Simulated assay, not measured.
Amino acid sequence: MVRIIFLGFIFIFLFYPDKFHVKFDYPGFPQSDSWYVRLAKLAFWLLLIVEILRIFYYGVVKSKAKGLVANIVTITVPLLVTLIFLEIIFMYIPQSHEGVLSKASQIWWEKYWNPVNALGYHDKEVRKESGKKQVLVIGDSFAAGHGLKDVNERFSNILESKLGTDQYNVYNLGMSGADTRDEAKRLKEFPVKPDIVILEYFPNDIEKVGREKGLTLSGAEPYADLKGPMATIVKRFYLPNFIYWQLPHTGFSTFEKFVQTAYTDTTVLHSHLRDLSEMTAYKDSIGAKMYAVFIPFLFQIDKSAGYTKPVEDFLKSKGVTVVGINDGIVKIPEKERVVGKNDGHGSAALNGLIADRLYKAMKKP
């Protein structure tokens, strides 16, 4: 009983620290469990298995207990131990998702999201080097390279290699979840003044403005379809969490309708274009050249190109060179356009296409 009570305290401390205002202090908290926290959880599960087997041995095997209860325990114990071992295994299985929502994606993030520089970007450190053209790539998670295990597969890194590191410095300011307003702010605050700005644009860049203007996206919140104890179990434990995120949730059609409404609502669109004008005004103030790449919904290419056409036309009117990639995307098989079945971010093949098109556009006389 003392051992079980002790394990109960450890269980609460490790799995429900927020209930007792306990906070762990390590990089990545509270997004993911650190290596040390997972090691502590591993030790807990192993100790729990020992106690379960001890109780089973003394309560059933050694005492030679018989009857319905003994039979139920004999069936339940191996099943319970198996589930605990599966929980332990899934504590170490990475899998990228759309965001850092699942526990498997948190493991992926911790394992593959490097380097991260002093400014918080998934990129090299900023270096003060004269004699080179400075290129800043701005955008959201597509620009940041979400889902790519090797940062050298990202279009900004490929582009820098094509341009030549002896003549160009390419910095990536991509940030997951960023919208246009945030991107303009970070562009102006970056310590390097660019000679060239590259904007990666995705149709959901208008989402935050749409929400500010009253548009709603129903069912978009993670775990919104879970109630009661099931929500707690799925959120806090690796095996049920992994299973949950293999299942479909908010439908694409729901999100597509939100985006379509946002781009056709003049109040939302004009507010969004004002945010974009902050970016174009900055590039004009420093005399920088600007390029824009529109990444469409990768399985709804023509539709999303239609939604974002007003933005494309606006950027062209501001002297921005829009680099087309849709004709190249359709030549890439659908499964090869994305990094995985649970993550719709651009694959290495798509990033290679973007880098190639940008390079050709930048080298035009």
Rank of each mutant, 00 (worst) to 15 (best):
L119E: 12
G120W: 06
G120T: 11
Y121G: 04
H122T: 09
H122I: 08
D123T: 04
K124P: 01
K124L: 13
K124M: 09
K124S: 08
E125W: 00
E125R: 06
E125A: 02
V126H: 03
K128V: 15
K128T: 14
E129L: 11
S130K: 15
S130M: 14
G131L: 05
K132C: 10
K132Q: 05
K133N: 11
K133L: 02
Q134I: 11
V135P: 00
V135K: 02
V137K: 05
V137Y: 02
I138T: 14
I138K: 05
I138P: 04
D140F: 05
D140M: 06
G145T: 04
G145P: 01
G145S: 05
G145I: 03
G147H: 03
L148D: 10
K149S: 13
K149E: 15
D150M: 07
D150K: 09
D150H: 07
V151M: 03
V151L: 00
N152Y: 07
N152E: 14
E153Q: 15
N157A: 10
L159A: 09
L159R: 05
E160F: 03
S161D: 10
S161Q: 10
S161N: 12
K162Y: 12
L163N: 04
G164H: 07
G164Q: 11
T165G: 15
D166M: 13
Q167S: 15
Q167T: 15
V170C: 11
Y171V: 12
Y171T: 14
N172H: 11
N172A: 09
L173N: 05
L173Y: 06
L173T: 12
G174P: 00
G174V: 11
M175G: 09
M175R: 14
G177D: 00
D179E: 12
R181C: 10
R181L: 10
D182G: 12
E183I: 14
A184K: 08
A184G: 13
A184E: 06
K185L: 06
R186S: 01
R186F: 03
L187Q: 07
K188V: 10
F190P: 13
F190A: 09
F190R: 04
F190S: 08
P191Q: 13
V192H: 00
K193I: 04
K193F: 00
K193A: 04
K193Y: 03
P194Q: 01
P194S: 00
D195E: 03
D195W: 02
D195Q: 06
I196P: 02
I196R: 08
V197H: 01
V197G: 04
I198T: 01
I198H: 07
L199W: 07
E200G: 15
Y201L: 07
